[in-house]
């Protein structure tokens, strides 16, 4: 199949007339881990949401495996930001993971023992099998994040979008997430991750997408993650930026 897992053409998104994303175009190669980087307010989450059709786009086209998103929903998995839901909702971890199967169930149909099994399996993949019956309000932040990941796994998609899965999690969870990402990659799946920690970019991602209202650069981490590009993305605000880049440059 020649088509890209994700292709975006001239995507423009605006909140209340103020454009957040301006004519962004890129293609994502198959079977890679891709980091989406950029300063706060650069439109990283907005990009994800627009691609998923959660917010209306002003202009532009998005195709998933060469087809419009509407037809390809079942092959897309999504991990929203942890803060986006109310964790005091009366339900347990297993239940949340089972929600990942709802898209595969039709109207009116209740999740059965098969869904239960899948959900349990996904929970154990993120090391949370012991917490299946636990109230979601009693999970730690990292555990909640892992439950969200397990739910995305339960979707059994080919292309995943993750909105800051590493935000505010401890080392154990971070390691578990990374391991999971590599597993997904080995299965030939493509994962797009909104990321903030520049120091781990080179270690985690094959490709990067640098964003600041518009696309600054996109491509293999080695070529794109350079001081020059980072300067353009973040402005001159962080002097240390240069330390993160692959190519050492004289002027610091």
């Amino acid at each position: 199949m020649a088509s890209y897992p994700l292709e975006v053409n001239h995507l423009t998104v605006a909140y209340q007339k103020k454009p957040v994303l301006n004519s962004v175009s890129f293609q994502i190669p198959s079977g890679k881990l891709i980091g989406v980087l950029g300063p706060n307010g650069a439109g990283k989450s907005t990009l994800l949401k627009a691609v998923l059709g959660l917010i209306p786009k002003v202009e532009g086209e998005v195709s998933i495996f060469g087809r419009p998103y509407r037809e390809m929903r079942k092959s897309v998995g999504y991990v929203p930001q942890r803060e986006s839901v109310d964790w005091d909702f009366p339900t347990n971890a297993l239940d949340v993971v089972m929600m990942g199967r709802y898209g595969h169930l039709g109207w009116f149909r209740r999740p059965g023992s098969k869904e239960r099994e899948i959900a349990l399996e996904c929970l154990s993949k993120v090391g949370m099998a012991d917490y299946a019956g636990r109230q979601i309000s009693q999970l730690s932040g990292g555990q909640q994040q892992r439950v969200f990941l397990a739910r995305a796994l339960a979707q059994n998609a080919n292309l995943y979008f993750m909105d800051e899965p590493f935000a505010g999690v401890d080392a154990t969870t971070e390691k578990a997430i990374i391991q999971l990402l590599h597993e997904l990659k080995e299965q030939g799946k493509t994962v797009l991750v909104v990321h903030h920690d520049l120091s781990t970019v080179q270690e985690y991602f094959d490709h990067v997408l640098l964003l600041n209202g518009e696309l600054i650069a996109a491509g293999p981490t080695k070529e794109i993650f350079t001081p020059d590009h980072l300067q353009k993305t973040y402005g001159g605000r962080i002097a240390m930026l240069q330390d993160f880049a692959a190519v050492p440059v004289g002027k610091v």
Binding site: K49, L52, G53, L54, R70, R73, K74, V76, Y78, P80, S84, V85, D86, F89, T91, V96, M99, Y102, G103, L105, W107, F108, R109, R110, P111, R151, Q155, F161
Partner: peptide, 18 residues
């Protein structure tokens, strides 16, 4: 099932095509 998902996580539900 639908009401539960929509009440808990509308963003996710929409992404799923509900």
């Amino acid at each position: 099932k639908e009401f539960k998902l929509v009440s808990f996580d509308p963003g996710f539900a929409r992404g799923m095509g509900i």
